[in-house]
Design a binder for these strands. Structure first.
Length: 302
DNA sequence: CTCCAGGGAGCCT
DNA sequence: AGGCTCCATGGA
């Protein structure tokens, strides 16, 4: 086991590990204290989080002065990349618009960073996310790993990597359904086969202009504009996507009604203009704020 | 019991 | 292009 610490003073801008990992951007980190995303500890806690990255175990927690990690390898670079520790979040948040809901969201979760999670597991997570609650997505992603992933031994425990596209493509639709993924089973299977066959290259998508990238991803089965936006935002580092889910749509209707009309693309473009130079960041703050707030209190500043 | 969840595919016009 | 219906499953 190796251990290390990333000094918070070395990270440009604020850092909030809990908000970053529990805001529905990623479903591959588990809290070691047994709490779930739906029943989190009070913010400011120092819980350990764990994932398996490319066969390596990484555990991380935030203390007063650092991000502390322990791992099967030197996790510094991987953590920095996955949690976007290089983002100058102080400057980014200064450029977020001052609208009531947005400002309240930033006030609550300043330090929440976008993530840059591995492409395949992000794609699978958001294919499963259709009509599914956040905590349930997390459970299903864990179940997929324990069922089809490769075992990794860690301090007397057996953990599991996320299964490859090939491993999932080999499963029958029936077996996938039996895990509880419901009607998404064929989406998962067919997209796994397409990725295994390299029908879509993550690297090529990542280097494309935003609209082209989104168009390419929607060629995958079970991937429409919303899921594509999530993958581009939470895995491939795009700044523009504003995934229009039920929460954001209702927020747009209430607070930005002039942007609510028209197609997904129309609304997407209109709200991007209102969300400042980092629309994806703005969206993620608003989403997390809404999802963790009673409807009546949204926009209120306590 | 009903309603809904980080939507998308298939079909219709 | 845009609208409608159906799609599993579990929790409130």
């Amino acid at each position: 086991m190796q251990t290390g610490a990333i000094d918070l003073a070395s990270i440009p801008g604020p850092m909030d590990l809990q908000a970053t990992l529990e805001s529905g951007q990623t479903f591959r980190w588990s809290r070691l204290d047994g709490r779930t995303y739906e029943d989190p500890a009070p913010s400011g806690g120092d819980a350990w989080y764990r994932t398996v990255h490319d066969g390596e175990v990484i555990e991380v927690r935030q203390t007063a002065a650092a991000l502390e990690w322990r791992s099967t390898f030197d996790a510094t670079e991987t953590l920095s990349r996955r949690l976007r520790l290089d983002d100058d979040l102080g400057s980014i948040l200064e450029e977020v618009p001052g609208d009531e809901v947005v400002a309240r969201a930033v006030e609550r979760f300043a330090g929440m960073r976008l993530v840059r999670e591995p492409f395949w597991e992000t794609l699978v997570s958001f294919i499963l996310s259709a009509q599914m609650r956040v905590e349930r997505i997390h459970q299903l992603v864990e179940t997929l790993a324990t069922t089809y992933g490769d075992p990794v031994e860690w301090r007397g425990e057996t953990l599991y990597s996320f299964p490859s596209s090939t491993a999932l493509a080999e499963q029958s639709e029936r077996d996938l359904r039996d895990l509880g993924v419901g009607y998404r089973a064929p989406y998962l299977r067919e997209t796994a086969a397409m990725i295994a066959a390299e029908a879509v290259s993550p690297a090529a998508v990542a280097s494309s202009p935003y609209e082209t990238a989104r168009e390419t991803l929607t060629s995958l089965v079970g991937v429409g504009p919303k899921v594509a936006d999530c993958v581009l935002l939470f895995s491939l580092g795009f700044a523009e996507p504003v995934p229009l889910d039920t929460w954001i749509r209702s927020a747009i209707e209430e607070h930005f009604p002039e942007a609510a009309a028209g197609s997904y693309d129309d609304t997407s473009r209109a709200i991007r203009d209102r969300f400042g130079p980092h629309p994806g960041y703005t969206q993620t703050y608003v989403f997390h704020h809404l999802r963790t707030t009673d409807r009546a209190e949204v926009g209120r500043g306590d």
